[in-house]
């Protein structure tokens, strides 16, 4: 909401610069076969008005950080090592009281980190500290760590939904952008597509997109349409190119949305199934021409 307030004022710009241009579609992908371009049918009548649809690409962003690649890990380890070698000395007496338990714990952990960076021989045991003292220090530090709950395991980075292949869960594929896809029956066959719907008279496209999303996927979720600009457009190929009668074009404008809370609950009469899918998984489900129209909109990460 806040960012929307911010942007309303950014739209105030001097007139003239942009408005004088002829309008055309931003990222137009035509799915018509190339043969029709060679021999255009002779148009006797004017084509009827295009049938416009607004679709929402509903996105759940990554919730877990990406796992670095082997190269990245090696790079980070090397840079961390240089940094450790060059950094200014840590002001131990500024942060810790002399001889306190916290200081002991910190020095032990620091020794461990140095060994990891510079090899096992780097920080040898201090000869002036007796073995009993060292053992007592270690026991005290372990006790402190236990009290602070440091031994507790972190949440796993892979969710159960990934293991059980639950495509409807919003917790799946935490490291990736996932998108909502619906399965419907159109023209006698099952197809997968984004939530979409028609535009009513006098309605703005982004408002239609929001309304259609809720009409298809229920009121049980909190969503936010990012921009009033469509982020892509897809023109459906006419069913029979042979007939000379001009057909109405079917144009779908895509809008990006984020799901903030809730879950999709599509109407079972119209929608047979839904799934939250990554870009690569979407490619395996949708039609080839539809994929050509949407592939550049979706995120690889």
């Amino acid at each position: 909401m806040l960012s929307r307030n911010v942007l309303t004022s950014s739209r105030r710009r001097p007139h003239g610069a942009v408005q004088t241009f002829l309008r055309s579609l931003a990222t137009e992908v035509s799915s018509e076969p190339s043969s029709s371009a060679l021999a255009p049918p002779i148009r006797t009548k004017r084509a009827p008005r295009a049938h416009i649809t607004a679709a929402v690409i509903l996105n759940r962003g990554p919730v877990v950080t990406r796992t670095p690649s082997l190269f990245e890990r090696a790079y980070y380890a090397y840079q961390a090592r240089i940094r450790r070698a060059l950094h200014n000395p840590f002001p131990l007496d500024f942060y810790f009281k002399q001889g306190s338990l916290l200081e002991t714990q910190f020095s032990l952990e620091e020794k461990k980190r140095e060994r990891r960076a510079f090899g096992p021989k780097f920080a040898e045991e201090d000869q002036f500290v007796s073995k009993e003292k060292a053992a007592a220090d270690k026991a005290a530090a372990d006790q402190l760590a236990l009290q602070e709950g440091e031994s507790e395991d972190l949440m796993p980075r892979v969710h159960e939904a990934d293991a059980s292949r639950d495509y409807k869960s919003l917790d799946r594929k935490g490291k990736r952008n996932i998108y909502l896809l619906l399965q419907t029956t159109e023209g006698g066959k099952d197809i997968w597509r984004f939530p979409q719907g028609g535009v009513e008279k006098g309605e703005l496209l982004h408002q239609a997109a929001q309304r259609d999303l809720h009409a298809e996927c229920g009121e049980n979720m909190d969503t936010w349409i990012v921009s009033r600009n469509p982020i892509g457009v897809y023109k459906e190929a006419p069913l029979d190119t042979a007939s000379p009668e001009p057909k109405a074009e079917k144009i779908t404008f895509f809008f990006k949305g984020h799901i903030i809370a809730g879950q999709a609950k599509p109407n079972p009469k119209a929608i047979s199934d839904f799934a939250w899918l990554t870009k690569q998984e979407i490619e395996t489900r949708v039609e080839k021409l539809y994929w050509e129209g949407i592939k550049d909109i979706l995120s690889d990460y």
């Binding site: 960012s3 942007l7 942009v18 241009f21 309008r23 931003a26 990012v226 921009s227 600009n229």
Partner: peptide, 11 residues
């Protein structure tokens, strides 16, 4: 998101 929100179309 920032690109979509701040995009101004020019042909």
């Amino acid at each position: 998101d920032a690109m979509y929100m701040t995009y101004i179309h020019e042909s």
